[in-house]
Design a binder for these strands. Structure first.
Lengths: 210, 210
DNA sequence: TATAAATCACCCTTTATGGGTGAGCCTGAT
DNA sequence: ATCAGGCTCACCCATAAAGGGTGATTTATA
């Protein structure tokens, strides 16, 4: 018989070991019930509507349609379902995109068993779309590195460059000469040890100089 | 006599009406004490260390050094103090920069009186660096507009462009011809009704197409 | 009073950009 | 089965932008 109050969990994860591991773990926990497991979004798409899960554990790195891209599709069919992202790495961008796509939280694959259960529980309680951990990451993502090799002006100009503006336009908007902008850019490139716009932007963003 | 358990509040706000309004409001609330008010960061800098506030209400739009830039300076002298940003507009970028600089939360200037007190209380309780409201804004900021006029490929290419990469480099990384990239860009420009990289990036970001 | 920052100048070559037009191929929807 | 949209590539054109070298002036600030 099905206990009506069980939290219904569905798992979409291509690695069988991990998938079955989670299923076993969650299934044996009182109050939780694994209603289905799938190795890909494509497999899940056909039948997951009928499983009526409360929570979906979704791997980000799925073959075929990625977990990230699967989120809005799943949400479309199951708007009330909470999606928890499974990820190996705590990569800012992936997690942010997942949240943007409608995920309610995330778990790294080395998360201890108890935490997994409590994460599912929290997300069901509507503790909010963001755990303190994610909130911390988000704030960190907005924080600048205070030990930048770039001067104020250089940072300012690199920020302008990162918006796609030409040097001429930057010069006009900052009320300085094009030659001055060029000088700053040369200095930026030297300091960051790069030889192009794209590399300068990437290096600066990686190091949170901008 | 000073009640030891009062929450010590300092206010930095250039508009006298608002400043005194908040001061009155908070001062008359049992458990709260306004220890100082300043019209600018420059005025506050000299003496705020001695006020030993628990919470600082800080206007973002200060004359001289802006509230945003004042945050790290204040944090340096008063690392234990929580800073609440006062802002007229709920502008994403400003708030995110404020959080990145170390602010603990924010209040809009039309916030009802009770909410102000409770925000101060929450931030003292360490309810977390983010209110549910801010969390919602953050998530929204990661969300894409689903009604984009751009195709998948066009979006992908515009994203690449926004990193500063040249068309040639984009072509190489996507394993397509330079001419194809050019075609996509022409279509992007037509759809967004722009005539340059910078404008395309700005329009797309404003509309959350990328 | 040194040093760093910001400013501007003139040299050079190569690469990138913006725009027009046309065309083939594939896929999903009607 | 047809047709539109999406992705691909081609060739045309002119101008703008980028990258790099060297040096010089001025203005804060330590």
């Amino acid at each position: 018989m099905g206990r009506d109050l069980d939290i219904r969990v569905s798992i979409i994860e291509d690695d069988e070991t991990i998938r079955e591991g989670y299923a076993f773990l969650i299934g044996k926990t009182p109050g939780y019930k694994v209603v289905s497991t799938y190795p890909s979004y494509e497999d899940a798409a056909k039948r997951i509507m009928h499983d009526d899960p409360d929570v979906i554990l979704l791997d980000v790195e799925l073959p075929g349609i990625s977990g990230i891209d699967a989120i809005p599709k799943l949400k479309k069919y199951l708007p009330e379902t909470n999606i928890l992202i499974l990820t190996v790495y705590e990569q800012d961008l992936l997690i942010f995109r997942a949240l943007g796509n409608g995920a309610s939280g995330y778990l790294t694959k080395n998360t201890p068993h108890e935490k997994i259960i409590s994460a599912i529980h929290e997300v069901m309680e509507g503790v909010g779309p963001m755990s303190a951990h994610i909130a911390r990451m988000v704030i960190q993502s907005f924080q600048r590195n205070e030990s930048t090799p770039l001067t104020r002006r250089e940072t300012e100009i690199l920020e302008q460059i990162s918006t796609g503006k030409s040097r001429k336009r930057i010069a006009q908007e900052l009320f300085i000469d094009l030659e001055t902008v060029k000088s700053h850019i040369k200095n930026i490139y030297h300091k960051l040890n790069v030889h192009s716009k794209a590399d300068a932007i990437k290096t600066a963003k990686d190091n949170k100089f901008i």
